[in-house]
Design a protein around this nucleic acid. Structure first.
Lengths: 251, 251
DNA sequence: GGTTGACATTGACGCTGCGTCAACTTCTAA
DNA sequence: TTAGAAGTTGACGCAGCGTCAATGTCAACC
């Protein structure tokens, strides 16, 4: 018994296009090809096709299926590996769902325009939790209301300032200069002044809290959301080190 | 302030390729293009880019992000819609994981070669649960051992017979003939004889159980794993109806 | 035998979101 | 000024098919 491509597609519950794809990739070649180029399949091909479709429903990729069917890989092992990958995906999805839910409630709660990233640890929609927990509710609400009172132009200017600073950090980091060099320390001072200009940042005596500066530097490195603004972990480490030297010398 | 494509990519924690992609799609065009074709971005573009990246991390697609940023769609609504889609994906993943786990334990448990689909409700790895629950453990074990005792050639022949039968059902269904026509009834008889030839199928008097035949027909329609072997729900319905007429007339 | 129209089959292009890469510029140090 | 490093560009690739224009096949009709 032999079937045309349509017929076997219906028998197996798939489409002729899929069959042609499986032929192109060599996964399920037709048992015979007519003189006109038409593909014909026998029952062996049908059995193979059905095994392929079953594995596909489980989510395995085509190359893996090919190796399993040709006996190059143990099926249980392939499925176990695949299961691990599925679990990772599940975790990713769970985290993503949580993020989306959090963003939605944040957007609904305040009238804040979305995602006001300030290039720093003061993004109010993103870092509220950490700031409140470590430095008290005042630290958050003070800088939050200060930020909200700004006009659009002022916000933009502030952001631009932050961006330029971040850019200079990046540029300095890629040149590989030392954290205690004059240049790095000049950058640290700019960063310090910038932070001081923000109401709500924890103080100590006449300046910023030394502890706060250290904590912030650590956050830059450990939290990817910060780190990416300073060129990833490498760049962020440079910033943290420079800030630490600055704090030791000046605070 | 103005940055090159590399610089803004690092500032935002992404790659220059992504930037060019966002330019092509119109999502984040550069603020200026040099005479040499180089792209340059200002702080407005940077802000826009960061909003895009934030939404991308939440999993939204590029077209949707574009509509949200241009104010054509409410952001909360877009996120809520996206959340629904994420939950669907989550469900899909959960089911897939369960399937893979089930398949693994089945494969580990018995020495059965994987996925011996018989084109019918007797696939031992797939339908054991339903058969045992409805028709008792004997029905399953009897046909299971009968099947296992077969040689590879015999199995193949049996499968081929089933495939031909399924094919003829399909072909008859697409022609739109009646379930009580002679032709359909001839097919029903072939199906009946085929089922009778399998030990373990529930009996009643000198033939197959009428109830069993009805149950099987219903399964063909309601269970997608069966239905797809008979051309989806439409084809399976035809088979079920023909079997029902056959049962009424002959059992 | 030739023609028409319905239905099949084929390969090519499209899609998502970029990674990778050959070819070409620009910038820097000597 | 020139060699070399670093940056930039558009083109191709990828996973797994859906969709589609062009062509092929086949039964029916003239």
């Amino acid at each position: 018994m032999e079937w045309s491509i349509q017929e076997i597609a219906k028998l197996a519950g798939t489409t002729s296009r899929t069959l042609r794809h499986y032929d192109e990739t060599g996964l399920v070649p037709p048992s015979r090809t007519g003189g006109n180029g038409y593909r014909y399949y026998d029952s062996d091909a049908l059995v193979r096709l059905q095994r392929v479709l079953l594995l596909r429903e489980l989510g395995l990729g085509i190359p893996v299926i090919g190796e399993v069917l040709d006996g190059q890989h143990d099926d249980v092992r392939a499925l176990t590996l695949h299961l691990a990958w599925l679990r990772e995906e599940q975790g990713r999805l769970d985290r993503q769902i949580a993020s989306v839910e959090g963003t939605i409630t944040t957007l609904k709660g305040g009238e804040k325009p979305m995602a006001e990233n300030m290039f720093d640890g003061f993004d109010h929609t993103q870092y509220e939790g950490e700031v409140v927990e470590r430095w008290g509710k005042d630290a958050y609400t003070t800088s939050d209301s200060w930020w909200r009172a700004k006009s659009a132009d002022e916000k933009k200017a502030f952001k631009e300032f932050g961006a330029e600073l971040a850019f200079d950090w990046l540029e300095a980091a890629t040149r590989g200069i030392d954290a205690d060099s004059d240049e790095a320390q000049a950058l640290a001072r700019r960063q310090y002044d910038w932070l001081v200009s923000i109401p709500g940042t924890p103080r100590e005596g006449d300046g910023l809290s030394k502890q706060y500066l250290g904590w912030l530097g650590d956050m830059y490195v450990t939290d990817p959301r910060f780190a990416k603004n300073y060129g990833g972990e490498a760049g962020a480490t440079f910033v943290r080190d420079a800030l630490k030297v600055f704090a030791d010398r000046n605070l």
